[in-house]
Simulated assay, not measured.
Amino acid sequence: MIKPVAFFHWLPLLMAASVFSLILPAHANTWPLPPEGSRVVGENRFHVVENDGGSLEAIAKKYNVGFLALLQANPGVDPYVPRAGSVLTIPLQTLLPDAPRVGIVINLAELRLYYYPQDKNVVTVYPIGIGQLGGDTLTPTMVTTVSDKRANPTWTPTANIRARYKAQGTILPAVVPAGPDNPMGHHAIRLAAYGGVYLLHGTNADFGIGMRVSSGCIRLRDGDIETLFRVVQPGTKVNIINTPIKTSVEPGGIRLVEVHQPLSKDIDDDPQTLPIVLTSAMKTFKAAPQTDADVMTKVLELRSGMPVDVTRHGEAVQQM
């Protein structure tokens, strides 16, 4: 049996989170950092679909989660017209990535950005859109810094982007001016690596956050990029990783696994069934006597994108 993560022992942290929520924008999912040795933040919520409750994208936007994250947490739900009365899990609980908690950490596989403000014991989690399948539209992993930021940016599409749009029947100008037709939205944060071609930016479209939709840049909802733009300064460290599996041994011995669909490499790939290659550390985690390997195997198959307790309980551990 796959067990959800119990969170009664995180009550003090969640109370602190409610205090932080009073001073941050309404849709910012900001949580206090967990105690030493822990990686769990956040708490899942539940949403009852009302009559004419809107699409899954509208619900994802309400809670500021990504579209695919909401779809993975609720397999079988109709993404266009969720059934009235059905209860959806809102996946706000997550394991922090295995990366230094400094500046901005982006995990491409989970389509999330983690921002660790300097000298504050909190993390804000944002859903993002990333690069589409295709040669020059993939978002690469990198360790870099913020080099510049600009409000009301213009967009200068590359020659490859203009050629791709032309093949689809759209002629792009050499420079798209700031305004409602600019797909970069109202704010852009430039990264130093690769000659500055990759940016964090907003969007002029409501759809696509939490999906692979961009030409390689990292896309955020307009309210999110506006907040990030205000607090992030040039020189801020940015670490972009691609890790579909995260594990944690929590204080007290609880063992958690969070599995996301790996990024497709081909248009015909099914990310729900693509093989996931375990690192040596993850193989060791799975083989440990404290881990229920059968449950972990099921979690690897389900790929719900949420932390799951895979601890082996009872006499089975004592006998091994």
Rank of each mutant, 00 (worst) to 15 (best):
I171D: 13
Q168M: 14
Q132L: 09
P140D: 07
G131Q: 05
T139E: 02
I130N: 01
A151D: 06
A174W: 04
G179E: 09
G134C: 12
L133E: 12
G135C: 02
T170L: 08
Q168H: 10
N160G: 06
G135I: 03
K149Q: 03
P140C: 06
T144F: 01
V143H: 13
A159Y: 08
K149T: 02
P173D: 06
V176G: 06
T158S: 15
R150K: 13
I161W: 05
I171E: 15
R162K: 15
L133S: 05
A167L: 09
N152M: 10
M142W: 06
T141S: 11
L138C: 01
G135W: 10
G135V: 07
T154A: 14
T141E: 15
T137C: 03
I130K: 04
L138F: 11
S147G: 14
A163G: 04
P153R: 00
V146W: 03
G131V: 06
P140I: 11
Y165S: 11
T141F: 03
L133K: 03
I130R: 03
T158N: 02
P153H: 00
V175T: 15
T156K: 15
P127L: 10
M142C: 01
K149R: 15
R164W: 09
G179N: 07
V143S: 13
N152F: 09
G131N: 04
P173H: 07
T139S: 15
L138Q: 12
P173W: 06
Y165L: 05
N160T: 14
N160K: 12
G129R: 00
A159K: 12
Y165D: 11
W155Q: 00
G135M: 07
P157S: 13
G129V: 01
D148Y: 14
V176E: 09
W155Y: 01
P140E: 07
